[in-house]
């Protein structure tokens, strides 16, 4: 901080600090404090706000704990998000390895551009593209029918559709951290392992993955958090049987009219996601600072 003052002087230094402070207070602290405040208060008509009934309690959170359907959807959201992270990892790892270790400069440029361009389009529109692809009378079913792989159209909307849509939506968040991590691996380590007789599987398991662990953890954390908080993909590609917890939160806010309960639900989701992330990092022995890099 003294370095900041030395470099920019008192006036500009203070301004920078004030801006950072304002950003932290306005964008991080205030919304979260408000969410917690909402979550712990009962939903009251305006006339009773500040009255004897307006007291802090855990009622809203306990409501979730006692509501079987919501609870099931909550846990399903958590493990399905983990599944999304895992599948995205399976899709991205081979590509990231190829890009980082084998591809020529030109190939890398073309592939990264091809992967990035779709992300210039809004997430809703990208998900709509999957909505069209996976439609009952859509191109995917038509294609599979024409090949004779299926005899009648498949209903893709639901768990499968949500999984596909999310995996696609979060590829880059997984790909880039892993790519960066693998790129820093000295190629001669892979060659040394091969020279010593290791199979491809063992080279990855013992040399590449341990080296890229922080990158993999970063990608998984991003993907898990984004998936758990996703709304568009489950709303468009889901079916009544594949409801996502964010949809329940949405309903409390905009259909149930109970912002307090909605805030409580959102708070629980946030806390549990954080817990899952921290536990995962602890198990993988990756520190949070490595992920932040």
């Amino acid at each position: 901080m003294s370095d900041l003052y030395r470099r920019f002087g008192g006036g500009l230094g203070t301004l920078f600090l004030a801006l950072v402070g304002a950003w932290l207070a306005g964008m991080v602290l205030a919304p979260n404090v408000m969410m917690i405040d909402y979550a712990l208060r009962p939903n009251l008509p305006p006339s009773q706000l500040g009255g004897p009934n307006d007291v802090y309690s855990l009622d809203n959170i306990l409501y979730l704990a006692n509501e079987g359907v919501h609870r099931a959807i909550f846990f399903k959201t958590v493990w399905a998000s983990a599944l999304v992270a895992f599948i995205t990892f399976l899709v991205c790892y081979p590509m990231a390895f190829w890009l980082a270790q084998n591809a020529t400069v030109n190939q890398t440029a073309i592939v990264l551009l091809a992967l990035t361009i779709p992300f210039w389009i809004n997430e809703v529109l990208r998900t709509l593209a999957w909505y069209i692809l996976l439609a009952f009378r859509g191109p995917l079913n038509a294609f599979l029918l024409s090949l004779g792989i299926i005899d009648e159209p498949v209903r893709w909307y639901g768990d499968g559709g949500v999984l596909a849509g999310m995996t696609y939506a979060y590829i880059l968040f997984m790909l880039f951290p892993i790519y960066n991590a693998i790129e820093s691996l000295d190629k001669s380590q892979i060659e040394a392992a091969r020279d010593l007789g290791a199979s491809t599987w063992r080279i990855h398991w013992r040399v590449v993955i341990p080296h890229a662990k922080a990158g993999i953890a970063t990608g998984c954390v991003f993907t898990f958090m984004l998936a758990a908080g996703s709304y568009v993909a489950p709303a468009l590609l889901g079916a009544p049987g594949s409801r996502w917890f964010t949809e329940i939160i949405y309903n409390w806010f905009f259909e149930g009219g109970d912002w307090n309960r909605g805030a409580a639900y959102a708070l629980v989701l946030l806390v549990l996601c954080l817990a899952v992330v921290l536990i995962t990092l602890r198990i993988a022995r990756v520190s949070l600072t490595e992920v932040a890099k």
């Binding site: 000295d186 001669s188 380590q189 392992a193 091969r194 020279d195 010593l196 290791a198 013992r206």
Partner: peptide, 30 residues
Amino acid sequence: NQRPTAMIFQSLALFPLMPVWENIAFGLEA
């Protein structure tokens, strides 16, 4: 991996995340 040769690289290419003995025994592990 099919030749009776072993290479020592200019960078040595030791596996930094394995203890010394696992490094040495890596070929046996394989």
